[in-house]
Design a protein around this nucleic acid. Structure first.
Lengths: 208, 208
DNA sequence: CCTCCGTTAACCGAATCGGTCAATATGATG
DNA sequence: CATCATATTGACCGATTCGGTTAACGGAGG
């Protein structure tokens, strides 16, 4: 891509990226017209082609940006260092929310890109997934201590259930199209509170 | 639409409907080409236009079919009569699964159609939603008895959490593109089992 | 042979696509 | 004001795709 893109004011860069995320997240690669992206960004198609020489380049750039931003945000917020299960759950959500506030469609875009079948881009996407996947290695389960949770509970199932519930909550907002991150944050927080009340073993005061 | 469609063998009707659900569930209304639907159904575009005079008619027919089939299946399975919370949850899932086995993309289609913005169809969709919505009136919460559940639990939050988790589970399969209904049924069932173990108050033997 | 009838290939005009390019608008410099 | 570099655009291109039409094909029954 044209390095001049980097010299644009941050805000304008973000607007263009968001336009890309928006269109590509709602249509397949092939059915996402550059003209529609340009319109969403408030610039002419010609200018968009000036910064990104063709559609594939823009798409792959968005994908890389996606991965880069995510890793940055996780490092910045200290999500990696989180050891407590509920804490890491809440931190993970905070990362998602913070990303979504700046780039409302980045989440849906990432999922769609990952499953994109178009041969023009699918191989490139899959190839660059190596690094991205390494991040999400979920080894948290093995570190859990049964003593901290209510007796007899299936911890693996509990984790799966928590994961699905948070995804289901997120999904509800996404479908509705209203990316009200504040409302989402509230819902997420209530979710974690609910889990803590239900799953954590009580009796000996503060655990650990 | 052409009444001759009804005289087609059930199987062929279903193939055509599924082709429609498939394409319309993956693209917006405007970006779902009739040719693609015809190909997916294994017939020529001309024949598709022979049964449905134009795209809008096919789309609205699919939508109506969607609502009709759902109500039928819920009546057939006796979901409406279910009073127990977990039971109605499991019955509801069974309905979804049974529909999804015959029409793999009907769920995603329904959601997309509901939020479709294209002025050519959006008003018609919204208008016909009156009947459809009446079905989903969730008055279940008010009938619940606190004595049946673990002490101090927020029943409304519990229900919300269960709903989100099942939606999140479904959503995971949908994104992956693999509509393995048997695996989904297993996951759903395990979910309900888990909820029962965690949420139901124990002590006085069988409740009620 | 003819006549239905399900089905299709070929076609139509209009729109849209990715991408190019010459022209214009803008702003700094002398 | 004139000059020049740069940012931005409208107009255009050839190719493709769109929704929809139409004439013809092909097989079954009389």
């Amino acid at each position: 891509m044209n390095p001049k893109f980097y010299f644009l004011p941050q805000e304008k860069q973000q607007t263009i990226l968001n336009a890309g995320f928006h269109v590509f997240s709602r249509n397949s690669y092939r059915k996402s017209p550059m003209s529609e992206i340009a319109d969403a960004a408030g610039i002419s198609k010609s200018l968009l082609f000036h910064y990104f020489h063709n559609k594939k380049e823009l798409y792959l750039f968005l994908w890389d940006t996606c991965a880069k931003i995510t890793v940055e945000e996780m490092e910045r917020s200290g999500t990696y260092e989180q050891t407590d299960l509920f804490g890491s759950m809440e931190y993970g959500m905070q990362v998602k929310l913070s990303l979504m506030r700046r780039y409302p469609d980045i989440g849906v875009f990432a999922v769609r890109a990952f499953y994109e079948k178009d041969p023009e881009v699918s191989s490139d996407i899959q190839r660059s997934m190596g690094r991205y996947l390494a991040v999400h290695a979920e080894k948290k389960l093995q570190k859990l201590d049964h003593e901290d949770f209510i007796p007899g509970i299936d911890l693996q199932m509990m984790y799966k259930e928590m994961y699905w519930a948070s995804e289901g909550c997120l999904w509800e907002y996404i479908q509705r199209g209203s990316m009200d991150t504040d409302a989402m944050e509230k819902d997420f927080h209530e979710l974690v509170d609910f889990w803590k009340k239900v799953y954590i073993r009580k009796g000996q005061g503060d655990k650990r």
